[in-house]
């Protein structure tokens, strides 16, 4: 997994690329989430557009990020969820947990509501 972090106003967008399948990715993503929290960034959008693959371990990594943000009065939302990822979220009913967007502007704007 690779990532880039960019600031869009008071929202942080994390662009993930490659594959998110567990292993070292879990530590890397957890460290990133804590780093953002420490710098006061609690409104997160994770952009999955360039993610080539994810498995249940990768979903677990996103859930850990989500729960960490929520415990700290923040949130983590998903952007550009592919059909494959959507089917995993649907089967595991995690589509009811994650707020998902197809449009980055809408994802960012959702934090202003």
């Amino acid at each position: 997994m690779k990532y880039k972090v960019r600031e869009e106003g008071n929202v942080t967008v994390i662009d993930l690329s490659g594959k998110l399948m567990g292993g070292d990715d879990a530590d890397v993503f957890r460290d990133l989430v804590y780093e953002l929290l420490e710098s006061g960034r609690k409104k997160i959008v994770v952009n999955l557009a360039s993610l080539t693959w994810i498995n249940s371990s990768g979903i677990g990594i996103l859930i850990t990020g989500y729960t960490t943000m929520r415990k700290n009065k923040g949130d983590l939302k998903l952007l550009n969820v592919s059909k494959k990822i959507e089917s995993i979220l649907y089967v595991t009913k995690l589509n009811l947990i994650f707020e998902c967007f197809d449009d980055e502007y809408e994802a960012i704007r959702s934090y202003s509501r």
Partner: peptide
């Protein structure tokens, strides 16, 4: 396990395979 339980770190893989 309930796969939507966000406190569960494991157990979703078998659930996914069984459903698909």
């Amino acid at each position: 396990p309930d796969p939507s339980d966000i406190h569960k770190k494991r157990g979703r893989g078998i659930f996914i395979m069984n459903a698909m």
